[in-house]
Design a binder for these strands. Structure first.
Lengths: 234, 234
DNA sequence: CCGGCTTTGTGAAATCGTGCACAAGTGATC
DNA sequence: GATCACTTGTGCACGATTTCACAAAGCCGG
């Protein structure tokens, strides 16, 4: 029972894969699977088995040679490492199309990220009820953050309003931001920002489509079939 | 006038940054800026200037020493390289919360990805109008793909339906998929898949919050202020 | 208890991505 | 047309990540 190892720095690339393993493991647990090999997990996650083993090794040594990993225990360890042993309330800034969809998306609550509040600057949107929460005026942001002890903010505003939203979130005491607006935010050091930009994702796909098209007709160069792309599963 | 260099393999990491540069450059162009230095662009994109130069060098040598890059020309070149010189119609599978938000999100059309159609398996959802498109039954997917020459599909179904959606998309002839469902899809080689998983993003943030919390009290190890994380802007 | 089979954990090599540092262009000024 | 200030393009070293390959460990049947 080594619980002492908890303070290792885990490579960012590994951190990004742990949630994927976690999700698969939970499914497997629900399906009654008790043990899983690195090979099996790798298969399901669409990655290399060695990578799975190395990733899991950062959590400590929780596998049994010749047998594999105990699913329930792995779930417990990954949850612990990711800080998912308690809920993280989030506050959403922007109650437009996307903000409403996010607030209404049950997945947040289910996965341990209850919506502590949703705010909008537009008085017409205030008081609308989306996904069980009532939209509050932007001014009340700091109050919500303080009252519900929120440390994660989600920006779902139009691009022009995103930097202001970020500033307000930071001032209110939020230390992590998930940004859906297509702008590069500038925030103080120590604040973690992740950006999800739908258009960027599509443009990356477009690049691959483009290449595919090029290598079909013209093709003096037989580009390998677009593998190696992040997110590609074969 | 060098159009001959077009067939270089561009590193995936660079491909993921080009859309960000593009967006900034378009803004700058709108603001009347004619030239920009790698330093300036780097600043706006929140990255290192050397990285900008190296990234742009994959497009060919379009800068002028002592001056910088001509914004309009860069925009043209990046567009060309990403295949954004024409529209890429997309089809959305799943007209739930998220699917509707996506269809209603003007950004798609604006950025060259018009919604060619949105389908759902649920008869109750069919015929609803979201964002200018009428929801069609799932059966008509293949027909839509063929008629509108769609090569990009977006999966916005519940997890359980996602693999089926992917299979149908592939069978219909789609070659790139943007997957919002929290499942790992399995698709034939040659199909490009990108996954956007909101819960995963939040869990990554949770990890960083967790670390922050740990290094505050206990703290025998002064973890550097969580930098190096992808997406962090200082 | 032993030998065979399986599967982990991890050094070490290979690959990929980043950032520094600087030579080599370019425009401006005199 | 020589000099200067500025900025690109890129070789190189470094760090991070992936992958290989294999010894060590655990289980099972005899």
């Amino acid at each position: 029972m080594p619980s002492h190892r908890s303070r290792r720095r885990i490579p960012e690339a590994t951190v990004a894969r742990l949630p994927v393993y976690l999700q698969i493991l939970v499914e497997q647990a629900d399906a009654g699977v008790e043990n899983i090999s690195s090979e099996g997990l790798a298969e399901l996650a669409g990655v290399n088995a060695a990578k799975v083993r190395k990733d899991l090794s950062y959590l400590g040594s929780y596998g049994t040679r010749g047998v594999g990993y105990e699913v329930a225990y792995l779930v417990y360890q990954i949850r612990r490492e990711l800080g998912l042993d308690h809920d993280w309330p989030v506050v959403i800034v922007g109650a437009g199309n996307l903000g409403q969809a996010l607030a209404g998306y049950g997945g947040f609550n289910e996965r341990g990220f209850p919506v502590a509040g949703i705010v909008d600057i537009d008085p017409d949107k205030v008081d609308a009820v989306v996904g069980g929460a009532r939209v509050r005026p932007l001014d009340e942001l700091a109050q919500i953050v303080a009252a519900k002890n929120v440390s994660i903010g989600v920006i779902a505003t139009p691009p022009a309003a995103a930097q202001d939203a970020a500033d307000r979130l930071v001032k209110a005491g939020v230390t992590s931001i998930l940004n859906f607006a297509p702008v590069v935010l500038s925030v103080p050091v120590g604040i973690t920002v992740r950006k999800v930009d739908l258009a960027v994702e599509l443009q990356i796909l477009s690049y691959h489509e483009q290449r595919r098209a090029l290598s079909h007709h013209g093709a003096q160069l037989h580009a390998l079939p677009a593998k190696g792309a992040r997110g590609v599963t074969a």
